[in-house]
Simulated assay, not measured.
Amino acid sequence: MAARKLQSEEWGQAEQIGYLEPLLVSKGKSWKGLVQRFPLPRHASDLKGRKVEMSLMLEVFEYAAELIGDDAAMLDYYSDLPHGAIPTFDYVALCAPSLRAALQNWQRFIALRTNCYHMIFTEETGFGILTWDIPDRLGTRTQNMFAKIAWASSRIEHIVQDPDLHLTIELTVPPPRCTSRFQERYGNRLLFSQARDRILIPYRYLAAIPPKNEENLYGLVEATAMAEVEKILSLHDPINRIKAAVNEHFKSGDCKLGTVAKSLGMSQRSLQRHLETEGTSFRELTDTIRRTLASGYLRETNLTLQEIAFLLGFSELSSFSRAVKTWFGLSPSQYRRNR
């Protein structure tokens, strides 16, 4: 069968489809059943490192459930998927300094997995909320959404390590006809045919520290993720490349227009023109990113205020303190205490 071109250029990482092979085998089916119907390689392992049109991926997931005759199997299978099965994207959460940072990282690094939907982390009264914003134009997503929600909830549970954790899961898709252990475990906290696809986490758990957290290891994982995102974005949106570069140069303490432009292989004027097309400037962009990083450093790390000021390019602590007061209405110490 001829390979389907990425005409829409809306892609997902193809190895997600490859994860289905063990599930098929466990149900008495084989990878060949998918190959006969879809433009897939003869071996599931050949999907590693490749991209596939997202609408095709969703079709494959739906057909796989039909093939095995169990439309709830994805919930159990992806809930039990081993840690690290989704390289980098698993570890930016499992090695993060807190559950809050883990959820922020999924939002931050979703470009590693796809270019056509978003994961969004927000905090509202009483809850941290992880939402999938997936366009309906991509097609039926029931089975793929079962996989996503089961995978994410299992990682959250592992990070929190509390049997009393009560997640609430809302799905836009209809309930399966079959049953699963996952459904039994969540009971009436697993809701179907809702307005959004999301997980609600009680606020008190957002500060939970993952068992695998270790500062040096996390530094390596984060650097790897940033490098992979930069590689992906370098082929597409120059604005995203600039944002990623600014983010990294802040962390090295050298975020000047000339330095960022040089690291991107651009002239300073070329970089400024890209930003002008977006209605912003280098100063406005760096201020926005500096504010975001300041919030993260103050909330999620034990770095001293002097260290944070240096990382954000402030020559004096007093300048950093004034900036934080402008951004958040609190001094750095007050903001940190209120985390």
Rank of each mutant, 00 (worst) to 15 (best):
L264W: 13
E248N: 15
P82N: 01
A96I: 05
N247D: 09
R141E: 10
S30M: 06
I308Y: 02
P238S: 07
C178S: 14
W31K: 05
E15R: 07
Q16W: 07
H236Q: 11
S318V: 06
I209A: 01
K325M: 10
S295A: 10
A72N: 01
T114H: 11
F310W: 06
E10S: 09
I134P: 00
A152Y: 12
L220P: 00
V35D: 15
H43L: 11
R4S: 14
K29C: 12
N105I: 07
I289Q: 03
E157T: 05
L298R: 13
R37C: 05
Q36K: 13
Y91P: 00
F282N: 08
A195D: 10
L75Y: 10
A44D: 00
I120Q: 04
F89K: 15
R189M: 08
I149V: 08
Y78I: 00
T224A: 15
I110L: 07
L293I: 01
E230W: 04
A195C: 05
V221H: 13
L34A: 06
V173Q: 15
N216I: 06
R299W: 03
A195F: 12
C95G: 04
L130F: 08
G279F: 03
M226I: 00
A111E: 02
L235F: 07
L94G: 05
G84E: 14
Q7R: 15
S98Q: 02
I239H: 03
A14W: 11
S55H: 02
I239F: 14
F310K: 12
L305Y: 12
L264Y: 10
H274Q: 13
R339I: 12
E215P: 07
R155C: 06
Y78M: 01
I134S: 05
W132S: 03
R177Y: 11
H249W: 02
S8P: 00
M226P: 00
K29H: 15
L190T: 02
Y203Q: 10
R204Q: 09
S319A: 04
S55A: 07
T288N: 14
S331L: 07
D90T: 11
E9L: 14
K212C: 07
I242G: 09
Q7I: 01
E316L: 03
W327C: 03
M266H: 10
L99A: 11
N302M: 08
R108W: 07
S263G: 06
A102E: 02
G329N: 04
G84A: 08
V229Y: 01
A244E: 05
D254Y: 04
I149K: 03
D287H: 06
R50H: 05
T224C: 08
R290S: 01
L220F: 15
E300R: 13
A309T: 03
E59I: 00
E170W: 00
Y78H: 13
